[in-house]
Design a protein around this nucleic acid. Structure first.
Lengths: 136, 136
DNA sequence: CGGGATCCGCATCGATACTG
DNA sequence: CAGTATCGATGCGGATCCCG
């Protein structure tokens, strides 16, 4: 997006971001704790519910269920219920979800490359804060 | 995100996800309700606190303050306090923050292009849900 | 003007139990 | 196996007051 004066295409974020702005609506969804992780996992192919649970550590079945339901509602994933003896349910990514997953994968790459800088900045910040505390 | 202290020793149910996963750590930050919006606004140049508040509708001063503080801690923005008669404080984006802002701006573009599809999917989903309710 | 401190409602999330 | 239902704890985020 370059610097302040040369926006790419239709850059109109000089105005206020009211709640109705699309950015915020999408941000509220991917801001969710699990949505992005599910999205990235499903890129490689359909995954069953409990396998999803295993691959994403630390998610409760309730949260995963909720997450998948809203993702399905938003058209990001598709649900396939197979009537086997113990019910089998597979989740797969939709074309729309795939475009978003591609974006979020870049965020993942950014994270891997720059997390070190973030951590370093934190250490510097905390050290400076402690110094002020001693001064006071 | 906030100033999450992250109690890492607390792993009651055994298999918690790996906190060392960079994706998750960054996601927790941008998952924050305001961070991304502030980031994108600051791309155009330094902005003062209250102007930031006006440009971003619906943010309380507490949340904006908290957000800016963690962003500063993470090295995404820089704070400039100018000792004028009523204190003036400007926030500007850092090079690191700019790289992340570039990414998030693409998310913003995705939102503007695809929000319609998401809304449409929701309508379809809700309509189908109502149909099942009538069947039952 | 910028922002820290405090109180508190309300949404979120985890754990548990139950259904199909 | 794949959920739903309910309860309870946690803590985000808003409102208000106050200080530099």
């Amino acid at each position: 997006m370059s610097t302040r004066k040369s926006p790419p295409g239709k850059d109109r974020h000089g105005n206020s971001y009211d709640a109705s702005c699309p950015t915020r609506q999408v941000l509220d969804r991917i801001g969710d704790k699990w949505t992005v992780l599910v999205l990235i996992l499903l890129v490689d192919g359909p995954v069953r519910f409990n396998e999803l649970r295993r691959r994403i550590g630390g998610v409760s079945q309730k949260m995963l269920s909720q997450t998948l339901k809203s993702m399905e509602r938003d058209g990001l994933v598709r649900r396939h219920a197979i009537a086997t003896v113990p019910v089998t349910v597979e989740y797969s990514i939709t074309p729309l979800g795939l475009t978003l997953a591609t974006l979020m994968d870049q965020v993942r790459l950014w994270a891997e490359r720059n997390l070190g800088q973030v951590i370093a900045a934190q250490h510097r910040y905390d050290a400076a804060a402690q110094a002020s505390d001693r001064a006071a």
